[in-house]
Structures are given as C-alpha cells and as structure tokens.
C-alpha cells in the first residue's frame, strides 16, 4: 500500500470513530453517514464501533439518577403509549438513487442553486444550520479538469457518482478523499460519466494555476 492510500485509510478510520462517538460537525456527519450507506466495509467497521460503545457503556461505573426518575419515565411512556413517535428513518440504498442522508440536501441538476463556475464545472452551496465549514456539491463533466487549487483548511470530499483522479490517486463512488491544509491539487473527472461529489472545506480555497490566479480575484 502506498503512502497516500495508507494516509486515506487512517483518515477514514478517524472519521468513522468520530462519527461513532458523535463528535462530528453536522456536514461531516452527513458525509460519513452517506459514505456508510454506500460502503459495506465501513458499515462493518461502524457496527464494530457501535458494539465497542455498548461495551464501554456497560463497563461504566453507574451514577444514580435522581429520586423518582423511573416513575417519571414510566409516566411519560404511559402518556405517549397511544402515539409513539419514532425518531428514525431508513437509509435508502436502492440502485439509481443517492442514499437518504445526502438526498435530503441535493437539488435537481436543473435547479437554480447550481451555478456554473467553469467549463463543465457546476457548484451548489449546501447550507447547514450553525455550520462554520463550507459544504458544496460539485458536478464535473466527463474528462473535465478542475482548475488547480490549494486550501487554507482541510477539505474532505465524498464521491457520490462517477469518479476523479488527482495527484493523490483515483477515487470512485463512496470513496473519501482528504486534502490537508496547504496541499495543491488538480482533480480530473473520469471520462465515462459526470462526476458528482460532496465537499466540505474548513477553510478557504485558493486557486493556484495560471487561470486560477485570475479566478481568485473573483473569489476574493
């Protein structure tokens, strides 16, 4: 395994652990949850991490609840017995559709929130409540090269459809690519179809190529 692949595996495990413990920001949580719906190996790891949580919960030293806590709870469950509200949903992994967590956020291709930001390149802002990072969808036409750019913060990208290749490797559906702060990269979409990605950036993007420097003037 090359250095980059091993780096990617480390980042993935760290993100999975953060997800299991509930430590992720909302955009990253949505990203990881979508990845889990698409990737069986990670779903298995998540199963293991939730079991680990159960083991650690059982091994915790108990701290007594206040007087009458059980009575409170029993009263509450009697009150709502007729109309139990479930706080869960299924993750739809059926073919041809994006899984639920991300499908809730992505607009149709023709929607006005998609903005053309280059030849064969469309972006769409995703707004999360209380979110400090920047979350975007990108649609990249087959074979299109995204202008070379660098980051002032870490960028996490999940491939939803199609694939792309950059200096760090090739990525396909369900793959997560991480660009560390200061890294420069120039992703090129695969030739066999449009590439759809979900990207979260915890800093600003600076375009670095010759065209990029001109575009920077527009960004800033």
């Amino acid at each position: 395994m090359n250095e980059q692949a091993s780096f990617n595996m480390q980042v993935l495990d760290a993100l999975l652990l953060d997800y299991a413990t509930g430590a992720l920001s909302l955009p990253l949580e949505v990203l990881v949850e979508t990845h889990l719906a698409m990737n069986e190996d990670s779903a298995k790891t998540m199963n293991m991490l939730m079991k680990l949580g159960g083991v650690l919960l059982e091994d915790s030293d108990p701290v007594s609840l206040s007087e009458g806590a059980l009575e409170n709870v029993l009263k509450a469950i009697e009150d709502d017995e007729e109309n139990p509200a479930l706080d869960t949903r299924r993750i739809d992994t059926s073919d041809g559709f994006l899984p639920r967590p991300i499908a809730d956020y992505i607009p149709d291709a023709g929607h006005s929130s998609w903005k053309r930001v280059g030849i064969g390149l469309f972006e769409c802002d995703v707004v999360f409540e209380g979110d400090k990072g920047r979350a975007k969808f990108y649609r990249i036409a087959p074979g299109t090269a995204v202008p070379s750019h660098t980051h002032t913060g870490t960028e996490v990208t999940l491939v939803l459809e199609g694939g792309f290749t950059d200096e760090t490797g090739s990525y396909g559906p369900s793959d997560i690519a991480v660009q560390e702060e200061g890294c420069e990269h120039k992703p090129v979409a695969d030739n066999d179809g449009e590439c759809l990605v979900f990207t979260i950036n915890q800093g600003d993007i600076r375009l670095t190529g010759p065209i990029g420097r001109v575009l920077n003037l527009l960004v800033n």
Binding site: E33, L36, A37, E40, A43, K44, M46, N47, M50, D87, T88, R89, R90, I91, T93, P99, P101
Partner: peptide, 12 residues
C-alpha cells in the same frame, strides 16, 4: 432524524 442501527445499511 438519526440513523437506525437495525437499518439494513448498518447490518450487512
């Protein structure tokens, strides 16, 4: 809404 562990996606 948060995911359900009994979801098939989490139980391969």
């Amino acid at each position: 809404p948060l995911p359900d562990l009994s979801d098939p996606a989490f139980a391969p």
